[in-house]
């Protein structure tokens, strides 16, 4: 009797496992094809995204406060040496430097905004991909702000990536340095075209024939082909060119213009119709 009960319990647990796996398979079949967020995904992103947004704000405030505290420390030591007279001057200097750095950053952003013909939207990064294999970020703008899947995302320095998934108030951005990202590009001087793919850290420029002359230091721009990114946005510079004996193409490494680790704010170009939508 006890043996049978034990067997029944074992059977029950296996049945549960089978059920869960079947559910997962159904889920996979229904979502993998479309690769779009379902209503439950959107709801979860809305809820957790709000939490992320709050935590990011707190972290920024703490970081700012800590930086300010450390800076104040430096100034105080300086003031000891200069018997208090230079205290105000030093503090002002730190403040002016910070203001100047801010000014330069905002000027870049403003210039970029002037250059962009399409309407744009500024967003803040509220969460980053915790995995080792993927490079995505979550931003605090979503479909209710006009963000749609496939829209290009840039910063003052250059191309950042494109919108991958959206919910009403948040969106997931696939960064250009992710191995799953590919962008049509053009070299500024030689006008050679190719495709830049992310390699996790930087970029690789692919499909450039060996008979093309490519110099190190050349600026890599978006070509406008493919319809996602407007033409002429900076992606980076050619860092290394290798011509192997075998194969048709050159191996070209591209140094990114954007420091992906230090990104805080992004600009989304609100195109009327994104490429993915047209498809």
């Amino acid at each position: 009797m006890r043996k049978r009960t034990k067997r029944n319990r074992k059977l029950k647990s296996y049945l549960l496992f089978g059920l869960v796996f079947t559910l997962v398979l159904i889920f996979l079949v229904s979502t993998v094809g479309r690769q779009e967020f379902s209503a439950s995904h959107k709801l979860a992103l809305e809820l957790v995204g709000g939490l992320q947004s709050g935590v990011t704000r707190v972290v920024s405030a703490v970081r700012g406060g800590w930086d300010g505290y450390v800076a104040l420390w430096g100034v105080r030591e300086e003031n000891y040496r200069l018997r208090g007279e230079l205290q105000q001057a030093q503090a002002d200097l730190v403040k002016y430097r910070e203001a100047m750095a801010n000014n330069v950053r905002l000027e870049k952003l403003l210039n970029l905004k002037k250059e962009l013909a399409a309407p744009f939207l500024t967003a803040r990064i509220v969460g980053r991909d915790p995995s080792q294999w993927f490079n995505t970020v979550i931003i605090n703008q979503g479909t209710s702000d006009g963000v749609q899947m496939g829209m290009p995302v840039v910063s003052g320095e250059g191309v950042v990536g494109q919108v991958r998934n959206t919910s009403p108030h948040f969106a997931k951005i696939l960064l250009a340095n992710d191995p799953n990202s590919a962008i049509d590009v053009l070299l500024q001087e030689s006008r050679v075209q190719g495709i830049v793919k992310g390699n996790g850290k930087g970029f690789d420029l692919q499909y450039v024939l060996k008979n093309n002359e490519v110099k190190e230091g050349e600026i890599v721009l978006t070509s406008g082909l493919g319809g996602v990114f407007p033409k002429g946005l900076v992606l980076g510079t050619v860092a290394k060119v290798v011509r192997n004996r075998r194969g048709m193409f050159q191996q070209i490494e591209v140094a990114s213009a954007v420091n992906f680790e230090q990104l805080e704010y992004l600009v989304i170009i609100l195109q009327e119709k994104s490429l993915t939508e047209e498809e």
Partner: peptide, 29 residues
């Protein structure tokens, strides 16, 4: 317990899908 643990694990996988990677369904599996 198996069922509770499996459901929670599935839920965490779905959450990870939203915030990491681009292949929906990868983390739950």
């Amino acid at each position: 317990p198996v069922f509770q643990g499996a459901v929670l694990t599935l839920f965490f996988g779905l959450l990870m899908d939203i915030f990491s990677g681009i292949f929906l369904g990868l983390y739950p599996v």
